[in-house]
């Protein structure tokens, strides 16, 4: 199966390791990712705060380019991109005036939007389409003894909750169990990481981050696994500030695709694991 791949800005910058791990992992599972031609920023949460209609125009250009590309589905790994692209689809469906303006704008670029291309998160595709049985067959080095805190964040499960429960999602839990890892109980799995507040207002922003890291440590986790580049950045990059403000809460935070790659026997450097601020111990030594 071939997917139109919408990387979003983060996967080309601070979240490179997500891209570096998702492409080989999907390839190993028989899925090819074709990067969307000349894709633009989804608009994220910031654009919605300034101008909702223009935010929809930004997102819809991508949706229209994806329809032109002709692959049946769009794969959006970043939670914010995933949410904004889906939210725009809802707006275009629910609000005729917004749809009218968007269609006029698309026309000037010789683009059209029909709404027939679903935007999906790779976790959904991996767990529900490819399936855990197929994944188990690919496991070469089971993640034995590795205790993982599955952290889903907010925007992949809320507000639409298309493929998992919005209060207690379990897709990632089941995935890591299939990889041979131990999943710790993690009730904060969908609590907000602070989003962009970590960069604008450290006190409220970093408290959100600190609480999640501390809880993961208290639960005995070796590593936190994320599905979103902003969650990964917040949980990984601010350890110095958190230690200065409260206390050290050092624990590595990796992408779920990096853990999959490790279980598939891929090289940690190829998966971008060296890009984390807190290094993950090689599997097997983690429990020691």
């Amino acid at each position: 199966m071939k997917y139109s791949y919408f990387p979003g800005c983060s996967l080309k910058g601070t979240g490179r390791a997500y891209e570096e791990s998702i492409i080989p992992v999907m390839k190993a599972l028989g899925a090819e990712l074709e990067e969307l031609d000349d894709w633009n920023c989804c608009g994220a949460t910031a654009y919605m705060a300034v101008d909702e209609v223009k935010a929809c125009v930004m997102a819809s250009r991508n949706l229209a380019i994806a329809e032109k590309a002709g692959n049946p589905e769009v794969l959006a790994p970043c939670s914010a991109c995933y949410l904004v692209l889906n939210k725009t689809k809802h707006y275009l469906h629910d609000s005729p005036p917004v749809a009218h303006v968007v269609n006029q704008a698309l026309k000037t670029a010789n683009l059209t939007y029909s709404g027939n291309t679903p935007v999906r998160h790779p976790l959904d595709i991996i767990v529900n389409d490819i399936g855990l049985e197929a994944i188990k067959k690919k496991v070469k080095t089971p993640l034995k003894g590795l205790k993982v805190a599955p952290y889903y964040g907010c925007q992949m499960v809320r507000p639409y909750a298309t493929f998992d429960d919005q209060y207690n999602p379990t897709s990632m839990d089941r995935l890591f169990q299939a990889l041979g890892a131990e999943v710790v109980r993690f009730p904060l799995k969908t609590r907000c990481c602070g989003g962009s507040l970590t960069g604008t207002l450290p006190e409220p922003g970093l408290l959100c981050t600190y609480i999640i890291l501390k809880e993961a440590l208290k639960r005995g986790a070796d590593v936190v696994a994320t599905v979103c580049p902003l969650c990964q950045f917040n949980l990984d990059a601010y350890h110095d500030q958190i230690a200065a403000k409260w206390e050290p809460a050092r624990i590595p935070t990796v992408y779920f695709t990096q853990l999959m790659g490790l279980a598939f026997g891929m090289d940690p450097v190829q998966l971008g694991l060296q890009r984390g601020f807190v290094a993950m111990k090689p599997v097997g030594q983690a429990a020691a």
Partner: peptide, 30 residues
């Protein structure tokens, strides 16, 4: 040092296309 700080700007190729789309929005009163 971790290769997560790109030193060049990311841009799309068809910037005028996007700009044209936004100008269209400016000219419609919703």
């Amino acid at each position: 040092t971790r290769g997560r700080f790109p030193l060049k700007w990311e841009s799309i190729k068809r910037r005028s296309e996007l700009d044209g789309m936004m100008k269209t929005v400016d000219n419609i009163s919703i």
